[in-house]
């Protein structure tokens, strides 16, 4: 397969700063792939997206989208991509439909085609009833859905989604996920997705790059990254007063993570196939188990492993900042 996006040592240093916001990142994204960029705030995800969507010029390095160079052929790139930026971009004084038609006219979509597409997209995200209302009357979730379809009005080959579910409630978020899955399945659209929600990347992305301090730390499928942690964690609880030492002799243990009287936390290669053997082994030693839990590795652990920090540590502060951003947007 041919990569639709090629990035080679792409670097961005903002004016007046010495530390690059994006530091020599290289990646290739294949046609039809959902590619995730996962990282905390300030990791350089949005800066990368802004360079690839030609909103920002790069300082060094090369990148192309659909074979067009990002610095020399920005118009050609803008024609084939759809962008759903982090901020809301719809004009509040126009209706949802008018916003769609306005953006369609930027791409010279013929009027009739644009009207048909707008109706279809409004239906897709359940905004048909609100289509002719002013956007200022929309709720936060409705506005995000509108932003998504504004990014689709030119039937892009590549769609950039920058934090598509930031600040949304859990329900609206899962609805957005459904739309994104649909786009990939039914239209074979290449989608570049940034997020600092692990679940989101895990649920949607075919491949993911973990980004931190402007650098790509590791790239792979969510499955590969999790597999690189080598194994699942099994936690066992035992009836009081039993000697659990014999359990530690089980052959499938890769690592003993925690051993206290009454509990044992171990790592095994694959809990699904290992568990029956482990149970048999424990029973044969005459030990009885009261509780048992299996923990599959998550991207959170992958992140922790590669960066030494937990991604969730900045979560509460983020949420506060988002709330402030939303308020600022309304007041402005």
């Amino acid at each position: 397969m041919v990569p639709i996006i090629r990035v080679e040592s792409l670097t961005k240093v903002y004016k007046g700063e010495t530390k690059p916001a994006v530091d020599a990142i290289s990646l290739e994204i294949l046609e039809g792939e959902v590619y995730g960029l996962l990282g905390p705030n300030g990791a350089g995800k949005t800066t990368t997206i802004n360079m690839l969507t030609t909103r920002l010029s790069s300082t060094r390095g090369k990148a192309s989208v659909g074979g067009h160079d990002i610095n020399r052929e920005s118009m050609a790139i803008r024609r084939i991509i759809g962008v759903v930026p982090q901020d809301l971009t719809a004009d509040e004084d126009l209706s949802g439909r008018e916003n769609l038609l306005l953006v369609a006219s930027f791409y010279d979509v013929p009027k009739k085609t644009a009207a048909e597409r707008a109706s279809k997209l409004l239906n897709m995200v359940d905004l048909a009833d609100a289509a002719d209302k002013h956007v200022r009357e929309y709720s936060g979730g409705m506005r995000k859905r509108l932003e998504l379809i504004i990014g689709l009005i030119n039937e892009p080959r590549v769609l950039f989604l920058d934090e598509p579910t930031l600040g949304l409630d859990v329900q609206t978020r899962s609805v957005m996920w459904d739309y994104i899955t649909t786009l990939k399945r039914d239209y074979n659209m290449t989608i570049i997705l940034t997020s600092h929600y692990l679940e989101e990347i895990d649920a949607l992305a075919d491949r993911v790059s973990i980004v931190d301090h402007g650098k790509i730390i590791v790239t792979g499928t969510p499955g590969e990254l999790k597999a690189s942690l080598k194994g699942d964690i099994v936690t066992m609880g035992f009836r009081d007063g039993q000697d659990t030492a014999p359990v530690k002799e089980y052959g499938g243990i890769i690592e003993i993570l925690d051993s206290k009287p009454g509990t044992l936390k171990i790592r095994v290669a694959d809990a699904d196939s290992e568990l029956p053997d482990l149970m048999g082994f424990v029973f044969k030693k005459g030990i009885s188990i009261t509780t048992l839990s299996v923990q599959k590795p998550s991207l959170d652990e992958v992140f922790l492993r590669y960066t030494g920090r937990s991604l969730r540590e900045d979560a509460p502060a983020d949420r506060f900042k988002n709330a402030m951003n939303m308020r600022r947007m309304r007041q402005a």
């Binding site: 809301l88 971009t89 719809a90 004009d91 791409y107 504004i150 402005a332």
Partner: peptide
């Protein structure tokens, strides 16, 4: 301030 500028800048105009 209100956002539409971001959309204009991302469009082929």
């Amino acid at each position: 301030r209100l956002g539409p500028m971001g959309r204009f800048l991302a469009s082929p105009i």
